[in-house]
Design a protein around this nucleic acid. Structure first.
Lengths: 162, 162
DNA sequence: CTACATGCAAAGGGTTTGCACGACA
DNA sequence: TGTCGTGCAAACCCTTTGCATGTAG
């Protein structure tokens, strides 16, 4: 499960190149955070990254970790589990369904697909535990966000969400 | 998109029956929250439910809304977008992959599937906006949680998450 | 050298908790 | 009537922000 040393090196380099290409200064702190994300096998939260990174740079601040992680996310060099920067949202739709999620405003729309209901979970996954449900998450940018400026997006998304 | 009145009635009843079957008192507040979740077309957060419900019960408290929603969730009568009660977690895996998520401890494990990469997004969904990525989320209970008591779960999950 | 990044500490915002009062069974 | 639920307000925790200092390019 743990990536091979060569892999880690490769993945770290990809992140650092990504930052450089975006014209962002490669500070010591940022490189250490990139290395940490490159070698992480799980899905660490900011605090876990902070703790790991502090062993190499004891003076690093938690908010530096946050700033770097959001930056990597904005550049699509890393990802998040679920929807980033979102509070908990509830879903009262009892019928099996799937979601299209806008990565800009967070709007989530339900859709149905007979084909998606037929998905067979790989054997390997069934060994992880007791499988209860399978849902497809399609990520993208909704029509409104495609034609709306950044500043207005979140406001509109929040207000029309009901 | 808005459910038909009959549908709302049906969905509300399902929620209320669920609570009753679990031996939980059907208070006025809980019924109003059930009705709100039954008629919600979107994916409201606790505050949106609170605001809607306050029009019918102006004295209701936000924490009552939270308590009721978590209760409905625990009974699997409603669902959440993403993983409930979780802080943001980051994912450094650049290869296309999918997740098995434990609904008890929050642990998420990556897996790969050639079949899942071939999924065709329905036409209808492409009309929602610019589709960037499709990911399958398998939910269930991991092996460890199947044999571990409730109290130990979150602690273990948090500690081994890296 | 100069713009940008960091560390610190305090603020912010969502969610939870303790407790006394109120209401369902 | 007794137990469980509610409202209130304070506490909590994760995340963000403002600002003075430090540093990569």
């Amino acid at each position: 499960m743990q990536p091979k040393p060569d892999d880690i090196e490769l993945r770290a380099r990809r992140l650092e190149q990504g930052l450089r290409k975006a014209g962002i200064k490669l500070t010591h702190q940022r490189m250490v955070i990139c290395r940490e994300m490159a070698s992480a096998t799980g899905h660490p939260d900011a605090d876990a990254v902070y703790k790991a990174v502090r062993e190499k740079v004891p003076t690093i601040a938690l908010d530096t970790v946050y700033r770097t992680l959001w930056m990597l996310l904005d550049l699509r060099l890393i990802d998040t589990l679920g929807i980033p920067r979102e509070r908990t949202r509830f879903d009262g739709n009892a019928k099996p369904h799937h979601h299209f999620v806008c990565t800009k405003c967070g709007e989530a729309r339900d859709f149905y697909s007979a084909a998606f209901e037929l998905l067979e979970v790989p054997e390997e996954v069934r060994a992880f535990g007791d499988v209860q449900r399978t849902q497809v998450e399609v990520r993208g940018v909704c029509l409104r966000c495609l034609e709306t400026s950044d500043s207005e997006r979140r406001a509109k998304g929040a207000e029309e969400r009901s």
